[in-house]
Simulated scan of single mutants.
Amino acid sequence: MKLLTLNFLTCARKTCKSNAAAFPLHPKEAELEQVETDMNPLFIKNILPRLDWEAMKTLTTELGLPNLPAETPSDEELATDGEPSQTAKDLHTLLMETSIQSGKLVCGNCEHEYAVKEGIANFLLPSHMV
């Protein structure tokens, strides 16, 4: 599960849908994997406005990854002379190449744990929690 994906997920319980603590899900006992992919600067540029930057900063801190800048990088910070900047390359590595291979995702509201195995999170809830 790519780190980018975590920025779009929240707890599956109905009681958590309206609670701000249910986002982002917090990684626990996470085993990370990095798989190299081709750089797509346009994708990075276009996805940044859609990200919850504070949630991304929280995730990187919890995973022990390098800290992100305080503010979302501007378009000028992502390219130098038509080439991707180091900031863009670092964001590509973080968002597109870094994945959680195994571990758990924990809701900050209800503390339910979603298992991640082989890079896939299981969001099925037991019947008593639906």
Rank of each mutant, 00 (worst) to 15 (best):
I44Q: 00
T72I: 15
L91E: 03
V116P: 08
T37I: 07
P41E: 00
V106G: 12
P126Q: 10
N109S: 08
I120G: 13
N122P: 06
E118F: 10
E54F: 15
T93Q: 07
A88P: 02
F23C: 09
H92L: 05
K117L: 13
N19Y: 08
N122A: 14
Q101M: 11
E36N: 06
C11D: 01
D81T: 01
Y114A: 02
P41G: 02
Q101G: 13
E54K: 08
V116R: 09
G108H: 03
E71F: 06
N67W: 14
L78C: 00
R50C: 01
L63I: 13
H26Y: 13
S18L: 10
T15N: 10
L25F: 04
M129P: 05
P24E: 07
K57C: 07
T58I: 08
F8P: 06
A79C: 01
K104N: 13
K2T: 14
F8A: 05
N19A: 13
Y114S: 05
T60H: 09
L51N: 02
K57I: 04
E77Q: 05
T10R: 11
K45M: 13
V130T: 05
L68R: 02
P41S: 04
T93F: 04
E33D: 07
P49H: 11
Y114R: 11
S127Q: 06
E31S: 10
A70Y: 11
H112D: 15
S102C: 10
D52P: 07
V116F: 13
I120M: 09
N109Q: 04
E33Y: 05
M56G: 01
K14G: 14
R50T: 00
V130P: 01
G82R: 01
N19L: 08
M39V: 11
G108N: 04
K2G: 01
V116W: 14
T61E: 07
K45H: 14
Y114V: 07
G103H: 09
D75E: 08
A22P: 10
L3E: 04
F43Y: 12
Q86K: 07
R13Q: 08
L63M: 14
A115P: 07
E29P: 05
V130R: 08
A79P: 00
L4F: 06
K17L: 15
N19H: 07
L78D: 01
A115T: 13
I47S: 00
L3S: 03
P27A: 09
L32P: 03
W53Y: 12
S99A: 13
T37C: 08
G82L: 02
A20Y: 11
E76I: 10
D38F: 15
L91C: 01
T87K: 04
K117T: 15
A55M: 05
R50P: 00
L63S: 02
P84W: 01
Q101A: 15
L63D: 03
K57H: 15
T37E: 09
T60R: 09
S85F: 02
M39K: 09
F123D: 03
D52N: 11
D38R: 15
L51I: 02
S102Q: 14
R50H: 00
G103L: 13
V35C: 10
L59N: 06
G108I: 04
D75Q: 00
C110E: 09
T37G: 07
L32Y: 01
L4P: 00
P84K: 03
V106R: 15
T61D: 14
E83C: 03
V116E: 06
A20T: 12
E76N: 14
L4A: 02
I100A: 11
K117W: 07
N19S: 15
E113K: 08
